[in-house]
Amino acid sequence: MSTDATGLPSDVGGAINTGLNAAASSVASAGARHVRSLDERLTLIGVRATYVSFSFFFACFFFAIVYLQLVNENGLWLPKGIDHPASALGVIETAAVLLAGLAYFWGQWGGLYQRNFARLSLGLWAAAILCLISVITHIIELHSPGFSLQGGGYVSCFVALEGTLTALLVVVTVILFGVANRARLGLFAESGVAIEAFGEFVGWMSAIALMTFLALYVQPFFPSGG
């Protein structure tokens, strides 16, 4: 194919594109702010879209908690004698995720904005280890919750939500170790957008962990709850 579909001289399109590229480059270099590349913007929007869809996913579990509590079918939302697992477990697993988020942010701030890559690496390793601690605590909690799995609506919601959150945490922990490893190798020196984007996801996950703790350990056991 050698004819230009437009009927114009065949190099016009290329010339216009070249001009546009040159203009974009000069704008980028003249501006005071860093202009993100297309791939960087795509990475950010991809991760944001992912956690928005994950939010709809987790909303179903929170809706189940609200719905079953309101309906209280046969009075079996929270039968007498049913209690949450040891509070210490809930606090540790949630605090570990929140601290992981903080460690990540601390590392990200130092690495990406102050160019201190040792701090980036340290922050990411700390986040990965804290998430691992949370995974282990979740597994202990689910293995010996202290109630029968047939013990009513609350128990069902507890197992479903904590089980799902644990699965997500396992995946995030694996990725965190990988990202920490890449930071150790100095692979984020050129572009740290992956760190930034995944940091948003870790932040979102911390919020979900906190909401889970409030929905399963605190709210149903308020005097007015259940």
């Binding site: 189940a64 079918e73 046969n74 079996l76 939302w77 609506g153 128990v155 069902s156």
Partner: peptide, 11 residues
């Protein structure tokens, strides 16, 4: 579990 089983507090 009984998320959808009324005799277990589900719906």
């Amino acid at each position: 579990t009984g998320l959808f089983v009324p005799v277990q507090g589900g719906s």
